[in-house]
């Protein structure tokens, strides 16, 4: 039975695309088939973060409008067989997405893949509501910062009213993924801590991704964080989150990539 996830947030720049690529790759590594779908029509970036920007021929809009068949638009990842990308259109605008068209594409993807992960655009407009429309579960990416938490709360309201599941009277499963977390600043009372965010949003936590230079390094190279350096702190945190999605019960730890004094003396990277 395939799972359709939406990675959403309301606010831009919190790490939806990074998260989509990282979780997609981490699940695909286990052998399950995964497709990551870019819903950010007009501002596509998932292709770039996945390192597939030069391989895009057809896109989601072409498939929605019947100009291309789904297999023509899917891009198979060069590193992992079981991972595919369905890019967004760069030239069209989000009005080209129709509810019926998205429903048909998601149904076709469900038949082909174990996991369909939809990367939502920022905002609460058509692109964002269609990205969440047919999802079974949502990952709400939140930074420990007031505007991000407020927007996440707004998105929770949309998930509970605008999705197909909500309209059928079913509950859509929702998870919080906290990104760009700085444990030291939270400990000093300079940043909302995990408990603050969870108390306010009252939703279960999927994972805590620490603030790390590795995220930019991986996107510079066009490699999902979980593949670029699997030993790095954000990669370990994303892998834990992926394992939780696959049903494993892991303790919630916040990995860090600070070097110990011993490692600094030896001049080695923290493993």
């Amino acid at each position: 039975m395939s799972q359709v996830l939406v990675v959403t947030s309301g606010k831009g720049g919190v790490g939806k695309t990074t998260t989509t690529a990282a979780l997609g790759a981490a699940i695909a590594v286990t052998g399950q088939t995964v497709v990551v779908v870019d819903f950010d029509v007009g501002l596509r970036n998932l292709d770039l973060v996945m390192g597939a920007e030069r391989r895009v021929v057809y896109d989601l809009i072409n498939v929605v409008q019947g100009i291309a068949k789904l297999p023509q638009a899917l891009i198979r990842d060069k590193r992992i067989d079981t991972l595919s990308l369905l890019p967004a259109s760069q030239t069209r605008d989000k009005d080209a997405l129709t509810d019926d068209g998205v429903a048909r594409v998601i149904k076709e993807l469900r038949a082909k893949f174990d996991w369909v992960i939809c990367d939502s655009p920022a905002g609460i407009e058509r692109g964002a509501t269609l990205a969440m429309r047919y999802a079974d579960a949502a990952i709400i990416v939140t930074n420990p910062e007031v505007s991000s938490v407020r927007d996440s709360d707004r998105i929770v309201g949309l998930l509970d009213s605008k999705t197909k599941k909500a309209e059928l009277g079913e509950r859509i499963e929702k998870h919080i993924l906290i990104t760009r977390f700085d444990a030291a600043r939270a400990a000093r009372g300079e940043m909302l801590n995990i408990k603050d965010v969870l108390d306010i949003l009252s939703l279960p936590l999927l994972g805590i991704i620490p603030e790390s230079e590795e995220v930019l390094r991986a996107s510079n190279l066009g490699t999902p964080v979980t593949l670029n350096d699997p030993t790095s702190a954000p990669a370990r945190a994303y892998c834990d989150a992926a394992c939780r999605l696959l049903g494993q019960d892991l303790p919630m730890v916040i990995p860090n990539d600070r070097k110990s004094i011993f490692e600094k003396l030896l001049g080695r990277r923290a493993a």
Binding site: E145, V146, V149, R150, D153, R154, G157, S161, A186, R188, G189, E190, M191, L192, N193, D196, I200
Partner: peptide, 22 residues
């Protein structure tokens, strides 16, 4: 730190926004 202020402001704002939702 400033985090308690952030938490307090969010609590007030969201209780208002949630009550008006829909």
């Amino acid at each position: 730190g400033t985090a308690p202020v952030a938490r307090e402001r969010l609590h007030i704002l969201l209780s208002h926004e949630r009550s008006n939702r829909g």
